[in-house]
Nucleic acid binder design. Sequence first.
DNA 1: TACCAGGTAAAAA
DNA 2: TTTTTACATGGT
Length: 271
Amino acid sequence: MLVPLPQPYDFELSTSRFDVYGRDAATLWHDGGLHRVFAGREVRLEAAPGGVDVHPHDGAIEADVLRFLGLPFELEPFRAWAEADPVLGRLALGLAGYRPVLQPDPFEALVTSITAQQVSLQSAAAIRSRFVERYGTPYEYAHAFPERERIAEATEGELFGLGFSNRKAEYVIALARTDLDLDELSELPDEEVRARLVALRGLGEWTADWFLARHLGRPHAWPAGDLGLRKAVAAFYGDVPDLRAFAERLHPFENLSAHYLLNGLRVLPPS
DNA sequence: TACCAGGTAAAAA
DNA sequence: TTTTTACATGGT
């Protein structure tokens, strides 16, 4: 059944992160469709005219699917705003239909970031997929991302065996066991979310920024410490000494700008 | 083979 | 207080 999305929409471009950076067992490409578990049911998403074909379709998960597909992003105002900037104007046109996906679950978002700290995204994906297959419930193709409660019972040695560093194994298990309510973070302003996350061991500014950007979809999130973003900004704008300060130029679309710059460097690098 | 990759905390200076 | 170091894996 078709779930309509604002046009233009390019499903392949918008979800390409789930294959170009390696295999993600929780959000898995299979035979031209993207498989993921929503509310205890595996769903297959496929490109379709006017939106995305969702199978099986269930009214109860439609809102979750739409959020996953990045519906909260305001692309039309972004495109109009981007016209004033030569770089983003070109990317908004060249990547027309790119709507960044949102990470549906806060625990998944944080564990995903921890696995990606310092190492390449490909390494992170390989390690994370072993983690998902070990602790997550298997469905037809995808696995549900492991429940926080299950990881609270895991041991550091088990995670080390999957390729986590000892440090990262500690971070993930401590995160699973902390009493911080990760769902309540969505009700707090950006700065408060950052403060609560950074207070946890293993979660730094970079991780907090990506949580705001990719889980909460906050418009002004800007992962200034991100190596990939730094390379993308350098490629399009030249040397920028202070990436945090550069964000002022991208206000009020810091988050979408970051996504278009990152994907732009991959798909439409400067000539 | 050695080096780097979408960081972070802890040790050392 | 600021700078340096260790960290595990996958790709080149």
